[in-house]
Design a protein around this nucleic acid. Sequence first.
DNA 1: CTTGACCTTATAGTTGCTGGAAGCTTTAGT
DNA 2: ACTAAAGCTTCCAGCAACTATAAGGTCAAG
Lengths: 140, 140
Amino acid sequence: MNISEAAKRSGLSSKTIRYYESIGLVKVAKRSDNGYRDYSESDVEALRFLQRARATGFGIEECRQLLGLYDNEQRHSSHVKSLVLEKVEQVESQIAELQAMRNTLNTLASRCAGDEGPHCAILDELSTLGEEESNLEEGK
Amino acid sequence: MNISEAAKRSGLSSKTIRYYESIGLVKVAKRSDNGYRDYSESDVEALRFLQRARATGFGIEECRQLLGLYDNEQRHSSHVKSLVLEKVEQVESQIAELQAMRNTLNTLASRCAGDEGPHCAILDELSTLGEEESNLEEGK
DNA sequence: CTTGACCTTATAGTTGCTGGAAGCTTTAGT
DNA sequence: ACTAAAGCTTCCAGCAACTATAAGGTCAAG
């Protein structure tokens, strides 16, 4: 099958598939007589695997590791599990960071009148934030 | 003051300050006789403002808008507030995405024995995930 | 036989910096 | 006075993970 079919079935774009090939994440596709890439079912399976793994939050290099384990009959499932648990930690710290941002933003917004006038607590606080021991967090 | 002093006071790195100048986010710094950039207190104020805004989750282009409002005496605080509220929405949808990821990862991990054997539910599910109407979310 | 959809490669752009090289000036120590 | 270290300058490359664009070859339908 052509690349666009493989793209549709895997949930990746054609561009992304070519990109993955170029960085050696998937093996080089075989070519038809016309020079077009030609994919088999098992190629699509690998592409799907990658699509899932990326959507689940793994980076490219982590996907490379996962694919290596996927292909390795000698693997230990503990190894795979530890990759996943490590990723959970990373994702959780990202969440915490974003939540802190959201809280700061909400506090900023709540202090701003949001009217026609030029005075704006948001701008005031963005320029001084942190100077007087962050009254933002404590809601003073 | 020299760039490294401005960096220390603003919380940005010297590289970042030069970068902001190069993209026109801050005005071109005036130079001392030796060719070194020379910053005033008010330059540092703008840099601090940027540092805060970036840390609070605004992108470069959004910072440009905020700085424009900061410098504009004719602004309406409602305009600033709507930028902030829009950003809250963006941050919240990022959080939701990451939470979904974390849940998927946790479910994957819980199904994996994590032992010396090669069988691994994580790899199984990454390769088929979504095919049978996602048993992952429902914990079947 | 032409139109349009597909395929190919190669290159550049995205975001927000960071790192390094090469070459100034300034500063501190001997 | 000399030297070494630190700080400044510019410019170019690179990171992630693609996406976009250009310029061209191929294929199926009407």
